[in-house]
Design a protein around this nucleic acid. Structure first.
Lengths: 160, 160
DNA sequence: CGGTAGTTTCACAAATTTGTGAAGTTAAGG
DNA sequence: CCTTAACTTCACAAATTTGTGAAACTACCG
């Protein structure tokens, strides 16, 4: 038997499918899920290629995307030609922090739109309220993530 | 000049593009943005078709999707054969509440995965922590949305 | 009961996206 | 420097998604 991680393969594909349905690229989803389920939270290109049965080119593309959105970083193994792709340590904190930037961009578009539509129109008011919502969300998200860090640190201490 | 809403068209397309980039279907994004920027928060199929320059079939498909995810509902105009597609009143509250269900599904998949991988393995621990994060997020989201409702109500009262 | 306005469904053509093999590039190791 | 392992880029074929016109359906209205 070649693949000793076989039982985890099922989880990888299930979770990847969820991510894909939520709008993430399919290969990126699979690579991310594979990293999540790997023992060290990191894999080489060859390992990913073998486990997911995809070409090195597909790994390359997926990793480029995951790197851009800040979920995975690349590390060169010292004294080797292999790269390792590794999950961020504060994965969810970092990922959601970055998502903030999207909210900022949306808010800008919405504020511009509200202005164009005019503060006196119902449409303008509705768009302005949407901008408010995203501003609110952004503000709340900071506190939320800090509470998560705290929660996480506390749980980790218990686990000692 | 045919189109008196021309200036808002720019906003509609800009915001729709943002939504599409975030993973929403393109036509659904455009229809949603058009409704957001409409004076009454509702439009008929014919109006959408004309403003966005798309076929009735495309409107139908987009509306079906938006209806499924609970962002738009259909209303029959009394004494007419036309449907109106209308934005929910508590739009963002409703939309994000529904998103909770996605988080629940993800959490289930992750808990199963953590169990398969084993609580003693680093992989299992990592997956379990991810499940914890989404559980945490879900719990926090409720309070957050209630605070939004409150904030919204307060702002509305000021505006009287 | 038709007639018909309005909407949905369906089959299909077009456009886009996806993943691959192969060639190209980079840098470790001799 | 030269060799070669490892990764990336590129062109392309395959698969999927998207939007359309046309036909089918629904239910108002006379």
């Amino acid at each position: 038997m070649r693949n000793e991680e076989a039982p985890s393969g099922r989880f990888v594909e299930r979770f990847a499918a969820e991510l894909a349905e939520a709008g993430m690229q399919r290969m990126a989803s699979r690579v991310f899920a594979a990293l999540l389920a790997s023992e060290s939270g990191s894999l080489t290109s060859a390992e990913l290629s073998e486990r997911l049965r995809i070409s090195p080119a597909a790994v390359s593309g997926a990793v480029r995307y995951l790197n851009q959105v800040g979920m995975v970083s690349r590390e060169r193994e010292p004294g080797s030609r292999r790269d390792r792709y590794v999950l961020h340590n504060e994965l969810w904190y970092e990922t959601f922090t970055r998502r903030d930037q999207v909210l900022t961009r949306w808010e800008t578009v919405l504020r511009d739109g509200a202005e164009t539509l005019g503060t006196d129109s119902a449409a303008g008011a509705r768009v302005a309220e949407t901008a408010d919502f995203f501003a609110f969300l952004q503000k709340e998200m900071r506190g939320l993530l800090d509470r998560w860090q705290e929660h996480r640190a506390a749980t980790a201490r218990e686990g000692d």
